[in-house]
Simulated assay, not measured.
Amino acid sequence: MKAVQLAEHGGPEVLRVVEVEEPHAGPGEIRIAVRAAGVNALDWKLRQGFMPGGDLPAGTGFDAAGVVDEVGEGVTGVAVGDAVFGAGRATYAEHAVLTAWAPKPDALSFEEAAGYPTPVETGRRILNEVGVQPGQTLLVSGAAGGVGTAVVQLAKARGITVIGTAGEGNQEHVRSLGATPTTYGDGFTDRVRELAPGGVDAALDIAGSGVVPQLIELTGDPAKVLSIADFTAPQHGAKVSSTSVDRPAALAEAAELVEKGSLRIPVARAFPLAEAGEAQAASQRGHVTGRFVVTVP
């Protein structure tokens, strides 16, 4: 089968479409014929060697949507031919093994569904970890990207008031999600205080743009600030979250919210498999509204 692999760490050019043996579903796993794979920051960080990623050559990608074509031992509730979305390994390929999945909502195309797994799991996890409650006010720094788009809508579904920061060109997108938008830069804390005269109860740093001290200033409590992108946050007393938890529950919640019309993560651009390197480069450049995905013919 065709799959994207890297034989060495480096820039987008190290990614190649090659012929490899098909993977097979082990116990508790399923295999899908991939229709689309989600592009995450973790993909290009592993490609560049910023994080431990195992032996090379290796496949790339964690999120995907497609049609089940193999069911592993002990798996129930899913059958060959079912359309699903979920997370697994080496998903930039014609076939991939998933370790967590949920039925693909009919309202989503395969391309859209492929962009959901990591953002919704991350969004759900960090909302739970920061402890923000219904009726409280949450500040999301970096509200326009995939994770930001997901966390804003998940928070709104829980009855949380959201203020979201984004670039000038993404203000309307943040507003369309149900959040009150504002911009980064000089005067950021003053703008937030004007928008939240009752104070900010918790803050999430999605973008990693060095704003953790300002978020602590706005919440008045480092324990109410959490980052997924700034690993210096603990130096200020804030938290960092990077470990996935309970993916199946997150996927099931996402599917339910999609069916209710309360969650939608747009596809910013779909790239063919042969342009996986450009897809990761676009992800690395940031300032995107929604998600990049790689499609498999």
Rank of each mutant, 00 (worst) to 15 (best):
D55C: 04
G208S: 12
V212M: 01
E29A: 08
A229E: 00
V293P: 04
R16F: 08
A33N: 07
A207Y: 02
V75C: 09
S241I: 09
Y184G: 06
S209C: 13
L154E: 07
L108F: 10
G187R: 12
A90L: 09
V267M: 08
K2D: 14
T183H: 13
L46W: 01
Q280R: 08
V293R: 04
R247W: 11
F188C: 08
G159L: 09
Q214H: 10
P266S: 07
E194M: 11
E278H: 12
G148S: 00
K224S: 11
I30S: 03
P119E: 03
D186V: 12
V34N: 02
A113Q: 06
A229V: 04
V152C: 11
P27R: 03
L108N: 03
G237I: 05
F50L: 11
E253D: 12
A25Y: 10
A255N: 05
P197C: 06
T118K: 05
E278Q: 15
A270F: 02
G135H: 10
E70A: 07
E19P: 11
V211F: 13
V152A: 10
A100P: 03
V67C: 03
T165V: 13
V293Q: 08
G26E: 14
A223C: 12
D186A: 15
S262H: 14
A203P: 15
A202Y: 11
L127I: 05
P272E: 14
G178F: 00
S262R: 13
V75G: 07
A58N: 07
T182L: 11
G210I: 08
T295R: 09
G159S: 10
A276I: 02
A233L: 03
A93M: 10
E168M: 13
E111K: 13
G74K: 00
N40K: 00
P213Q: 02
G26S: 10
R285E: 15
V4N: 00
D230L: 11
A93Q: 09
L46R: 09
D43E: 04
A33L: 05
A3S: 11
I160V: 15
F110Y: 12
F231L: 14
V293S: 06
T289K: 14
G178P: 00
L42Y: 02
E259L: 02
E19W: 10
Y184I: 04
V71Y: 08
A276N: 03
R125A: 15
N40G: 02
E256G: 15
A100S: 15
E129L: 10
R285V: 10
T189A: 14
V4S: 01
D205W: 13
P103A: 14
K156V: 10
F188W: 10
F271G: 06
V225A: 08
G38N: 04
H236I: 13
G28V: 13
G77V: 03
A96K: 13
A282C: 08
V212C: 05
V20D: 03
V288D: 08
F62T: 03
T165W: 00
P266Y: 07
P297L: 05
R291E: 14
A207R: 03
A166G: 05
P105W: 05
E259P: 01
A250M: 04
A83I: 01
P57T: 06
G10S: 01
V296Q: 06
R31F: 04
G77W: 00
V67T: 06
